[in-house]
Design a binder for these strands. Structure first.
Lengths: 329, 329
DNA sequence: CATTGGCATGTAATCGATTACACATTTCAT
DNA sequence: ATGAAATGTGTAATCGATTACATGCCAATG
């Protein structure tokens, strides 16, 4: 492996000059610069990033913490992040918490020790230890998906998105709507979306029944199972629509409905949230809400870059969404 | 930021002893060890990885190079890789070439300069400069998806998978099969799959016509467009089945067929490759081939770990696959 | 009792970069 | 002509860890 010293020797200068030439800092004669660059070309020399990072305290690496590596949402966000960061010469150090809150905290520390320049967290929950850890590591930090106090957060407007979706159902004539949510550990998905649903239903005179309210775990299977439970518990007085807080659960619900011979949307309307690629190609195509995840990733990366340049950035950002009306309603 | 020196001072030992305690190397008295560990706990000290890596030449980071961050195949593979590596305390440094061959090479060098311990490349093409670069960086290296000479490669058995799929179509009574492939830049997908198709068709008396052979670009849209072209060019004597080399293109083709009122599979059978989650939920569900991408990722990671431990590993590995028969045939 | 070897710890070199500071030379304004 | 400013280069310290080598102690061995 060639080092800066090798280059210096071959170019007959000190390594100081090589460093200056490479980083465009200080004065270097045109002559020396050319000589150095030529040798750099020839040898394919690349500065050792560990050494550089040790000295400068910057690594050109951004840590990204995901709840799950294999969901479309995560992938899209990472894609957006990467697009922006790669352009600026940053790399992504990826970690996957597998939805484990302990790991979330552990990884924040780990990334710090790995000298990342900043961290983007796709947050799924909010708790004091997490906030404390983020404060401790004292790095440019960005959260996506949950509103973390005193942390720059990009949040989806879950409340209004959910309210719009519910409203739409009601205005299409559905008053009896089943709901498939998730655990309240996840404030955005588990609480906000449900709250908006309940608020709108109440305001607009919809019918809410306890046994029409299911709780899944984000998976397609859980959507299927919850739908089954709801219909079995309902008997004759069944809901005429079902609102699942994620596309995957909505698609699970659709599967069960189709199996049981219900026609969608005539017998039962179905809606989800997320605009997954699945939602577009299932039959009938699923009405859903697009959260523009990729754009969220891009914006997060841009904000992080601004922070790295010591620009002041606001603390809260609300992301936009779009209702996509399709054939399932 | 606390360093090893801070710990040493507070524990009244030299940093050598702290290092030994932390790495379980050499002798450390039980007493000293306890004192050190206690302070480490209290301060939440984590060794600076840049310094460590500079000295030891190992970073605990594995570079992963993807052709595209946002495909299901990539995601599954990365997921498998991460599962295995995380367990061993490795992190993933992610790069996305956006299908650019230049970047592929650039990133290999970059990862080297970042001191990664090894590289896993999801390869999409094979060329001399690539091989040369891999040889140059001289790192534990693993390729997935293409057979790179003199590089440990995990390859999908594209030829036999494609042959099986074609055979299946023929034995279901389809002799007139359209084919939607991709550019020959990609040996595995662009050449092997087509070659197997042609070989089987010839052997089994299938009908191949030039205007039944399309070339897409992996996207759903391109599947749609190619299907349109093929049917328009065919007139009355149209194919009775279409084999697209990826699920996404198959789904695009299905979209067009459905739009035009063809019944699947009665009027036209459709098959793809990849076992995407889409394939399961489109209507009718798509017959496809599962390449077990996640397992491929796991195996790649395991092999890389073996290499890191200086174990000898073979150069070529053939991955298994599974034909999934669904309703589109 | 002298010697050997295990245990515990410390000193200082080292990894490969950046950078404060010093020094020499050239340029330029007054 | 002269001092100040600009230009070009080098010396050596530094970042935070690991590790070869040295040293001292103590118990066991013959």
């Amino acid at each position: 492996m060639t080092t800066i010293n090798d280059i210096a020797k071959r170019a007959n200068v000190s390594r100081t000059t090589v460093s200056r030439a490479l980083n465009n800092s200080g004065y270097v004669s045109e002559e020396a610069r050319k000589r150095i660059m030529k040798i750099v070309e020839e040898t394919g020399y690349m500065p050792n990033q560990s050494a550089k990072s040790l000295r400068t305290k910057r690594s050109g690496v951004i840590g990204v913490i995901l709840p799950r590596l294999s969901t479309e949402t995560s992938t899209r966000v990472v894609n957006g992040i990467n697009e922006v960061l790669a352009k600026e010469g940053f790399q992504i150090l990826l970690t996957d918490t597998e939805l484990d809150k302990k790991k979330e905290i552990e990884y924040i520390r780990l990334l710090k020790s790995r000298h990342v320049d900043g961290i983007i967290l796709l947050a799924t929950n909010v708790n004091d230890e997490l906030i404390q850890t983020i404060r401790d590591v004292d790095l440019p930090f960005l959260a996506i998906g949950q509103d973390l106090p005193e942390v720059t957060s990009l949040v989806y407007d879950d409340y209004h998105a959910s309210a719009d979706l519910t409203n739409m159902l009601i205005h299409k004539g559905h008053h009896k709507i089943a709901f498939i949510g998730v655990s309240r550990d996840d404030p955005s998905v588990g609480i906000m979306r449900e709250q908006a649903f309940r608020d709108v239903m109440e305001r607009e005179g919809g019918v809410i029944k306890d046994h029409w309210m299911g709780t899944g775990d984000f998976s397609i299977d859980s959507g299927y199972e919850e739908m089954k439970k709801i219909l079995r518990a309902s008997g004759k007085n069944r809901p005429r629509a079902v609102y699942a807080v994620t596309d995957r659960m909505a698609i699970g619900a659709m599967e069960y409905l189709k199996e049981q011979g219900y026609r969608i949307p005539e017998d039962m309307a179905v809606v989800g949230i997320g605009a997954s690629s699945l939602s577009q190609y299932v039959s009938p195509s699923l009405t859903t809400i697009d959260y523009f995840n990729k754009k969220a990733g891009q914006q997060a990366a841009e904000l992080l870059l601004a922070k790295l340049k010591n620009e002041k950035v606001e603390e809260k950002f609300e992301l936009t969404y779009r209702l996509i009306l399709r054939d399932s309603v």
